[in-house]
Design a protein around this nucleic acid. Structure first.
Lengths: 209, 209
DNA sequence: GTCTATAGAAGGATAGAC
DNA sequence: GTCTATCCTTCTATAGAC
């Protein structure tokens, strides 16, 4: 029978590991720091998760889900495209305001180890989403000259506008020094919800003219 | 007097270090691997560049310049905005096709050590660029309702569309499996030069209607 | 300037007591 | 299940011969 303390400790480790990996990245993360933040010692880490790799393997997938499930769920909704776009920017930017280094962390880890994505099988989401989005709005899209082959360019553009500012935050801060204040940067991203939606919808309106 | 061999060796080290850091990132890069690729041994690395940090410090700034000087030089040109946008996507995407992991590398390193940007003083580029771009095109912009305060949102959007696909390449490959073939991904990015330009220009055309 | 050999430090992992 | 002590490997860095 599992003691109550077990789950608690495992939970503390999991939380600490999530934070440290997300902040530092896999290569720079230290088991010592994870142990410290969890309020235990290194040995106990290895008792619960045999190795650094295993610990990372436990922590990583939920973070990927946190990053992507909103995209999927929103784009699969059966609502008008404009509403979908506005919902997407609202909710996804909210997630990144709460987890500002989630995107750079995930994308950097994946870039150095593409196998990390193998767990998330292609059929699960991606093809379904791409096809459904186009079919749902095909009549809207046809009017403005957007075809199935344009979908990748379009979808990637939509997502770019939400995620990139968080990835390039330090560069953005050089460009606009006020954003060194966290408050100001967040205000900028709040404003971006409507800016990005307007931008995309406006672009699509007369794209093929 | 400096021997000829010196510069050659230093150059080989510099090149090897650039490659390894760019591929692996600072934390995961190994001095041994740099030495191997340079065709020398570890001791000689330390003879030329006292420490890993110093070597990195020598290698990093030129890479930042490679990433950004095109943005600056093109946006400072005195040509119509549309031409500027098309030139920008053409040239910047070309750079990333040749250096696909430059963006994720730089942005990840900077995110974990913001001091890396201190060498690139704010006054050098950023404020000049932001102001000049707006003033150059203020009459064009005024017609379509774009104001000075919109500039950060606009500029960041423009850059997002070029850089993000390279940062998120593995995700993009899940979304469009064909892009696992390098040829197909590059074709996609070639096509993106005009897609992104059309997208931005179309968005701006009736942004405030 | 370049090498071999080795020191020294750090970090991941395990043994064993409680 | 948790701790202390310690091992082992990896990596950075230096000493010293040529």
């Amino acid at each position: 029978m599992v003691k109550e303390g077990d789950r608690q400790t495992e939970e503390k480790i999991f939380k600490a590991a999530t934070d440290v990996f997300e902040e530092k990245g896999f290569a720079a993360a230290r088991m010592q720091e994870i142990a410290d933040r969890a309020g235990i010692n290194k040995s106990l880490l290895h008792y619960y998760f045999r190795s650094k790799e295993q610990l990372f393997g436990a922590v990583f997938p939920p973070l990927v889900m946190k990053m992507f499930e909103k995209i999927f769920s929103i784009f699969m909704l059966d609502v008008p495209f404009e509403e979908k776009i506005r919902m997407y920017y609202d909710e996804h930017i909210n997630i990144f305001i709460k987890n500002p280094n989630l995107p750079i962390f995930i994308l950097n880890e994946v870039a150095h180890n593409p196998d990390l994505l193998k767990k998330f099988s292609y059929e699960d989401f991606y093809s379904r989403m791409r096809n459904n989005v186009f079919q749902m709005h095909s009549s809207e899209f046809k009017k403005i000259g957007i075809e199935g082959k344009d979908m990748p360019q379009l979808m990637i553009s939509v997502v770019s506008l939400a995620i990139f500012p968080f990835i390039a935050r330090d560069m953005v801060q050089m460009f606009v020094p006020q954003f060194k204040e966290n408050k100001a940067f967040i205000a900028f991203m709040q404003e971006r919800k409507t800016f990005a939606a307007d931008f995309v919808l406006s672009a699509m309106k007369n794209f093929k003219k």
